[in-house]
Design a protein around this nucleic acid. Sequence first.
DNA 1: ATATACTTTCAATATTTTTTGAAAGTTCGA
DNA 2: TCGAACTTTCAAAAAATATTGAAAGTATAT
Lengths: 168, 168
Amino acid sequence: MKLTEAKQQFISSWGAFGTHWGINRTMAQIHALLLISPDPLTQDDIMEELNISRGNTNMNIRELINWGLVERVILPGERKEYFTAEKDIWKVVKQIVKERKKRELEPMMQLLDKLEDVEGDKKDKKVKTFIDTVSSIKRLGLQADKTLDVMIKAEENWFVSSLMKIFK
Amino acid sequence: MKLTEAKQQFISSWGAFGTHWGINRTMAQIHALLLISPDPLTQDDIMEELNISRGNTNMNIRELINWGLVERVILPGERKEYFTAEKDIWKVVKQIVKERKKRELEPMMQLLDKLEDVEGDKKDKKVKTFIDTVSSIKRLGLQADKTLDVMIKAEENWFVSSLMKIFK
DNA sequence: ATATACTTTCAATATTTTTTGAAAGTTCGA
DNA sequence: TCGAACTTTCAAAAAATATTGAAAGTATAT
């Protein structure tokens, strides 16, 4: 397979992959493109390569910057902004985990705390099932939260080798 | 907070949560409703409780069954089908992990295998960056795959306590 | 100060995804 | 075999989401 074709495939399936994870197609595609680009690209490069409009490109680059996955780069002597993506995949994964934890897990835990305090007779089957469900989700969530915290701080080597020990 | 209100909140935020994870709102809401229902429900119960149409309800129940999260139950002496959700959250999580691994991770790994073989001079910076990126994603993917496999087989207690050992 | 090069915004539009509900299909008891 | 009770399908409609591009905004060099 030629590089051009391989690039296309990588970008397009990274985009499709993204949509399963609540990330929009274009954002994932821009990320993919930057991941495989040895040098920083301008917004125009990205627009041209992916055939998307100026506004769309700009918006999704900003979003990638918010997620901490892409950085603005100013090349010396150039007027334009360039963009580049973190290439260390382990760092990328940790960054995504960190953001999603903050954006999704933490608010969910707060809600569960409130819902656990529902009024009502705990001998009522409906009340009991509700509280039991909420509590057990909360328990697992807390565990996940702690585990992810450690993972975020870990080095890849350390993480992988620890897992290897447990998981044979 | 009253049970009725708590239920509403739980269902609606489970639905919103689902959309961040590539699961559609209704599917997640039906799942939430069944999770907190002590007894199996009929399709009509679900339709009424969530105010959704027959077709939509049917389609999403089927999808939940495909995912292995919901089961059909026939109550003795009744004509209608009832539905019930697995209540053990650890089992639910394992089931979801198993399905997503199969549906997403495995196809991605297959693609990466192909893409790693791209033709071209490895001294060319573009080719090199491409292969490096693909390879490192593959490496992490393989590790994730193994880890998830073990997780899928683990008991919650075993899993959690093992993690606790590593992660202090 | 202003022209130029570049970036951001956002209302309108297009696309994708979800939902509806009536019709077709199925199952089962009599 | 019939018909009532129930389930599934799917084309059309609605809703949600993403994209466009022209206009407004900003920063910089001279």
